[in-house]
Design a protein around this nucleic acid. Sequence first.
DNA 1: GTTTTATTCAATTGATTTATTGATCATTTG
DNA 2: CAAATGATCAATAAATCAATTGAATAAAAC
Lengths: 220, 220
Amino acid sequence: MPVSRQELFDVLSQVGRALGSGHRLALLEHLAQKHAPVEELAGASGLSIANASQHLQHLRRAGLVTARRDGRQMVYRLTDERILRLLTLMQEVAETHIAEMERLMGRLFDDDDAGETLEPMTRAQLQRALEQGEVTLLDVRPREEYRAGHLPGALNAPVVELETMLSALPRDREIVAYCRGVYCTFSHDAARLLRERGFQVRRYQAGIMEWRAAGLPLAE
Amino acid sequence: MPVSRQELFDVLSQVGRALGSGHRLALLEHLAQKHAPVEELAGASGLSIANASQHLQHLRRAGLVTARRDGRQMVYRLTDERILRLLTLMQEVAETHIAEMERLMGRLFDDDDAGETLEPMTRAQLQRALEQGEVTLLDVRPREEYRAGHLPGALNAPVVELETMLSALPRDREIVAYCRGVYCTFSHDAARLLRERGFQVRRYQAGIMEWRAAGLPLAE
DNA sequence: GTTTTATTCAATTGATTTATTGATCATTTG
DNA sequence: CAAATGATCAATAAATCAATTGAATAAAAC
């Protein structure tokens, strides 16, 4: 009995369906920062434990995440770098071709100071600036996410603690702030605060997500 | 009123949902070969016209395809190269991480001569062979798909007509056959026939789909 | 070996998605 | 302008998916 083309597409569509829920995408974004047990993922995504568990198993069946028992926790992680590539590609497609997305992205940031925020840096620009040692790189995500892996050479200054760390930051060099990815506002919040205090600052908005998706190394 | 992260993920999930149906993936595979009106797409995917139309609009809302009226037909096409990248990435993920997929892929080809078929060529291998002018490249898809765009330098020999074209093919050079993509069996069927007739033949199984996804040019 | 903790399973309910049917709309042809 | 063609829309029924609840497991702590 030969296998029909359609059977293959049906199995393949599992991957698509797994990516077809906002909650599951939120889980994946969190896993793009660090591997994590169910409880943490549920908390970060605003889901009940049981519900998160089921979504995670959905992702697992689709091959997007793996799970490993560690003591009494079940630690989930992305299966490989390709999943990041899938996510960033989806983001690009949505940003470019879905009008609703553009509208929301606009509103995500211009709460009060629309015009003031500079264009974010691209990864290529950031890499060039880093090579030439021109900038101070600032990871404004929470401490645990920084510890689980961050851009080489980045300092950690969680956005909530940023105010208390200003004296440690240079005023004569440009600062580049980054966070989780395009849908994360930490770097935006940080940049606004820093600019108000007289720092020169830009953002690498694509963040950890795009960096990892490009296959670039993280430091620990 | 600020936009929540979750709203963004919900919009983004439209892209995933659009990829979450075997029928829609079949439509996309066809569109990866050539742009086409609804009727053709419905026929190729075994869907009713109305149903195909609705699936296509689903894809359109997700930004995966665009439609342009041409006379009384509505011609659909992929929005851009990124969609190909999405599809090939999904395939890779499924092949690597979903056991069911591996099983089906195995059964797709080994109907009778399991062991005989050589490992397919990778794109890199093909490119090297082409540069050195070592091989004759054979596009075994239907004529119209070939005409809509094919690998530079490829001859067209639709698998159904292949038997009548054997005399035009070289016996002293290796032939490389390719078709639509990993789920297309044309190149496999062609390779078997050619091998039976004493030709030296290999397959570039990833086909047009992967070639385009890599951003490489087609000839017309 | 019982209790505690973290997770999964199973059953239920409500919400989406899908395929089908027949009607409608836009464009071209006679 | 009427008829024909290609595609979309609207309404329905069937199938699938999502969130909730409470029970069941598995490992660790007592």
